[in-house]
Design a binder for these strands. Sequence first.
DNA 1: AGCCAAATGAAAACGATTTTCAATTAGTAA
DNA 2: TTACTAATTGAAAATCGTTTTCATTTGGCT
Lengths: 146, 146
Amino acid sequence: MIYTEKRTEQELRKNGFKITPQRRAVIDAIAGSHEHLTPAAIYNRVRREHPSIGLVTVYRTIEVLAGLGLICETHAGGSCRSYLMRRPSEHHHHLICSDCGKVVDFTNCDLDDLESRLVKETRFKINGHLLEFLGQCLECSKIKGR
Amino acid sequence: MIYTEKRTEQELRKNGFKITPQRRAVIDAIAGSHEHLTPAAIYNRVRREHPSIGLVTVYRTIEVLAGLGLICETHAGGSCRSYLMRRPSEHHHHLICSDCGKVVDFTNCDLDDLESRLVKETRFKINGHLLEFLGQCLECSKIKGR
DNA sequence: AGCCAAATGAAAACGATTTTCAATTAGTAA
DNA sequence: TTACTAATTGAAAATCGTTTTCATTTGGCT
């Protein structure tokens, strides 16, 4: 736990960010919870020990931490809700190029085993899933290399 | 396709909702797409054929359809983003309750075979993936039934 | 101690969604 | 067919979460 906070600060420093009491407080709040916290929940926790902090600062700190991959975000960015007609079968998924945004569809995600395992373990009633692969398409790999 | 629209109207009627041209238009728009559509995207499609419709009506129709389980909603309602400290053990995924927003983590997504298949077929360089299952947790299934 | 870019907080701006309310309309009953 | 009523609609305002702006403060360097 304390190890996590230390490591997080090192990582911030390494990337040229400053360590402020506010950032420490946000990191402590997230590291001190094993639940997923919404920005508002993080704000409330931080305020207990640090009443004068602004919600804006919480958002900005979250942005930095997520940008460095130090915290993990549920729900990829972009707009929040989307809808699809519920059909008997057919569904598909996306393979997205992070550089040019090209989207390739694919089917046969073959998640049935995984789904049954989850149903058994969590007792959830599962309605669907969202699966996206992210990477670079052939063209972009050629151009940008790396 | 037409079958889907018909069935949807029947289901609305059965539940005491009226069939209006606006609702027909929204249903057509969603049924006519194999992609997940955001409310705004639905609105834009509907306006092509029905320019005077209000965005509010689109939202209200979506709400009714989703409430009856006729369309499937990606991303649980309520606030959109939540964060968790990324710990050494790392890579995990989410199972999200669409009703109360509860998030259960799981690991072992076992997507390596699928990933190699996609690399072979598309020549993408794959950097990562996003996998979320959506459903109802045990508590919410009990409350809401269905 | 002093400097400067980075970070902060308050307020305003913003976009998505919801509520309010008066006017319209679908579906039923006469 | 006409008339009635509750449901539905659209416009505007309200609300919620998030982002931007900007003047002030501060961490980390010299």
